[in-house]
Design a protein around this nucleic acid. Structure first.
Length: 484
RNA sequence: GGUCCCAUCGACUAGGGGUUAGGUCGUCACUCUUUCACAGUGAAAACACGGGUUCGAAUCCCGUUGGGACCGCCA
């Protein structure tokens, strides 16, 4: 256990700002947040922007916005600052330089002068020979004189880690248990690039140490580089933080979740009208569950914080199942506070061309259709009856029903009854229909089906009396009159 | 290919020496409903395989197979 900092837990979410927020990143961020809050510790945001070629304008702002929207808060970071800043790695170059020099002085790192091109050639050859692609450590034993000479010539260089040979690195992962790797197969990783920026490996070790990070919680794709990091910690005489590598989120074919097979951007899910409660709840359960026979599936952020432990994180990957996401979102939508849901739904009504100034009316419509919604984006498809001016049944079957003699009778009678009313409401609509039933002797499908089709253009949907009320007397009469 | 990780219904998972292997999504059926949906009830559906250890293995160990990740002057 890491005991610096008086035992206070400090974790970090350290994304590189290269664009949208990946579902996998969201889960890593969530787990960090839940773990920090559960332990009464600090959650820190650090921006890993050491790759100058991959910078994306606005990505950091976007990331912070998305996290904020989902209720994932940071105690320290670019926005709120903190005692361990700056929180952009690109502003911490002096630190990396300093410790890189220290590594050099201690003989744990060395200069290398190969160009990218030369390295490419090396790898190609290794591949051709069926060997593992790996730096051949050719610059490892350059003499001091040779190094100085190259430096004097102004040759571009990188600093590489001098991996100790013939050793075994062993560490305990909080999720996966003990992991051991032979150092001989570990690359002499580049620490400092020729542009003077550090690589991830150097920067994350230096920062995690300087920022007093106690637990590193990140994706499983990092496990294989842990030994490199441990070598750096050891060389610098630093304590290694606890590690927890969370399993990957997978496509339905079990490969790492990727854009090729559907949406992976949190922004997209938000935009489609997946609620933030759904997203955090669902994502938390991808690879984690409370265990102990617990069968509750709906958890608020507060409950998640209370229940979350690393021990209950699954060690195998989890397929991202949109069907279940939809189900859960639908459950949240069905049970959401009507006023709040209305507020969230307004933009989707607006997009469908519905006048939204009368929010009470929107609320009423929403109460009719929410049961059908997997996501708010489904609203337009489910309220098409509102703005339908022409009834154009999309198949002959419907047309036939509308044009039958008995239907005409129904429409005519119903119009008569409704035109006598001051205002249409579910009660007097029902009364009117049952009067039609008495007068015509028609009932069941022969009575209800034609009306539904005439009013909505569809064979099914929400309860007719409620739809009738929302449409209003004039609209209903207008729609009926077209058919007799 | 090398290294590392992983393995319970189609999916998410509970269970971690003795269970009729439980729940949720999805699927199917039935009930309710003058429609669809909702709701309710029920069904089909899993311990990858082979060896050990043990009185007893889904559970512990080893191996096999299968899957995945990583192998950049990216993170």
């Amino acid at each position: 256990m890491n005991n610096n900092n008086n035992g206070e837990v400090r974790v970090r979410f350290a994304p590189s700002p290269t664009g949208f927020v990946h579902i996998g990143s969201l889960r890593t961020a969530l787990f960090n947040y839940l773990f920090a809050k559960h332990s009464g510790g600090k959650n820190i945001l650090r921006i890993e922007d050491t790759d100058q070629t991959r910078k994306v304008e606005g990505a950091v702002e976007n990331l912070i916005r998305v996290m904020g929207k989902l209720g994932i808060e940071f105690d320290e970071g670019p926005v709120q600052g903190g005692d361990f800043g700056p929180y952009y790695q690109s502003q911490r170059l002096d630190f990396y330089k300093k410790y890189c020099d220290e590594l050099l002085a201690k003989g744990s790192a060395y200069y290398a002068f190969e160009t990218s091109h030369e390295l490419d050639e090396m790898r190609k050859l290794q591949q051709l020979e069926g060997r593992q692609t790996m730096y051949d450590r050719r610059a490892r034993d350059l003499s001091e004189d040779e190094v100085q000479e190259n430096l004097k010539k102004g040759l571009p260089y990188v600093i590489r880690l001098k991996v100790p040979l013939n050793e075994e690195i062993r560490f305990n992962d909080l999720i996966k248990g003990t992991i051991r790797i032979e150092t001989n197969i570990i690359d002499d990783q580049i620490l400092l690039k020729s542009d003077g920026f550090p690589t991830y490996h150097l920067a994350n070790v230096v920062d995690d140490h300087l920022m007093k990070i106690t637990h590193i919680i990140r994706g499983e794709e990092w496990v294989t580089s842990v030994p490199k990091h441990i070598i750096i910690y050891n060389a610098l005489g630093w304590e290694v933080p606890e590690m927890a590598h969370v399993p990957l989120i997978l496509n339905s074919d079990k490969s790492k979740l990727s854009k090729r097979q559907g949406d992976v951007a949190v922004e997209d899910f938000l935009q489609k009208g997946y609620l933030k409660e759904t997203l955090t709840n669902f994502i938390a359960f991808l690879g984690w569950n409370p265990g102990e026979g617990e069968e509750q599936e709906f958890f608020s952020m507060e409950e998640l914080i209370k229940k979350f432990t690393l021990e209950k994180v699954q060690s195998s990957g989890a397929v991202f199942n949109v069907d279940k996401l939809n189900w859960m979102n639908n459950e949240y939508i069905k049970n959401y506070d009507p006023d709040k849901l209305t507020e969230l739904a307004l933009p989707y009504f607006s997009k469908a061309g519905i006048e939204i100034s009368n929010t009470e009316r929107i609320k009423k419509i929403l109460s009719l259709v929410r049961v059908y919604l997997n996501k708010l984006e489904d609203i337009p498809d489910n309220i098409s009856f509102l703005e339908r001016k022409e009834i154009e049944p999309d198949n002959d079957n419907l047309k036939e029903i509308l044009n039958s003699e008995s239907s005409k009778k129904v429409f005519e009678k119903l119009s008569e009854k409704i035109s006598l009313l001051d205002e249409l409401n579910p009660e007097n609509y029902k009364t009117a229909v049952s009067e039609v039933q008495k007068d015509t002797g028609l009932k069941g499908k022969e009575l209800f089906k034609p009306i539904r089709i005439a009013l909505t253009g569809s064979e099914n949907g929400p309860e007719l009396p409620l739809i009738a009320e929302i449409l209003g007397k004039d609209k209903v009469l207008d729609l009926l009159k077209r058919w007799f």
